[in-house]
Design a protein around this nucleic acid. Structure first.
Lengths: 140, 140
DNA sequence: TTCATTGCAAAAGCTTTGCATGTGT
DNA sequence: ACACATGCAAAGCTTTTGCAATGAA
């Protein structure tokens, strides 16, 4: 159904559904976690795809635009993306020592943010909260 | 007093207080808002400083380490930093249309985050919350 | 004097783009 | 057939680094 959504988007925009675009989206749907463009490219290559880096980089913005993926963080100099799941938005805790990422969700937090936006007359579309610190293992 | 803090840090680490480092910190203290390395470099140049880009890039990590500045976001491919002010931490709302940045602070939000960390046995050190959307002017 | 530091320019690393060719619709 | 896409390689940008010269302590 994500594929359907993408297909409609392309049609609407007068763009074309190519084998490359399909392969890229497919690979993202198959992955569970975060990914960066290079990683995605390598995965595709490994599976025998002939897609080029350029196409990967050119397709990602389209997928962000449809709302199928979103940029979650930038580590060093490369962007990281994540599939937007059906279930629900979540935020991240990132361990500054081992890099472990804990995803969490707090309805209270979501509500509070809506309130804050209202107070500032700001129309919030999406948000990202990152808590940096140390995980249980690395020394709380 | 920030300068004092930096000086002590350098001494402790066996590093030297150079004219360049002083000029860089000085310029940051004079600025009120966010900045990126290039912007900082240009400002210094404009004021007649002879500092090189390399020194700017080499000094920034030191200032982050002392806790005088922090990275607040990455836009496109460049990092943005901000002076850590005496007063208090704040988060950001960013208008996706005009780029306006609204800083806000919510004690409730701060408290809530401490609770969330506790639940995950995570030792939070700092966090950043970005709400993306549209400001009053750009169409709420 | 002795290391850390600087500037320069080259290198690195991620992402974008020009162009000729290929391909959905 | 007509745009739009693709791959490739080159270009772009921000950030890092090697090296010889410089300077703080």
């Amino acid at each position: 159904m994500e594929k359907q959504k993408f297909r409609e988007f392309l049609t609407t925009k007068g763009l074309k559904l190519t084998k490359e675009r399909d392969e890229i989206l497919h690979e993202i749907l198959v992955m569970k976690k975060h990914f960066d463009p290079e990683e995605l490219f390598v995965r595709l290559k490994t599976k025998g795809s002939k897609v080029s880096r350029a196409s990967v980089y050119r397709t990602i913005p389209l997928l962000v635009e449809v709302g199928l993926i979103e940029e979650v963080e930038r580590i060093d100099r490369h962007a990281h993306y994540e599939k937007i799941s059906e279930d629900r938005h979540h935020d991240h805790m990132i361990c500054m020592k081992c890099g472990k990422v804990i995803e969490f969700y707090s309805p209270t937090l979501e509500m509070l943010q809506r309130e804050i936006c209202q107070k500032e007359n700001f129309k919030g579309v999406r948000h990202s909260l990152e808590i940096l610190g140390y995980c249980e293992k690395c020394g709380g």
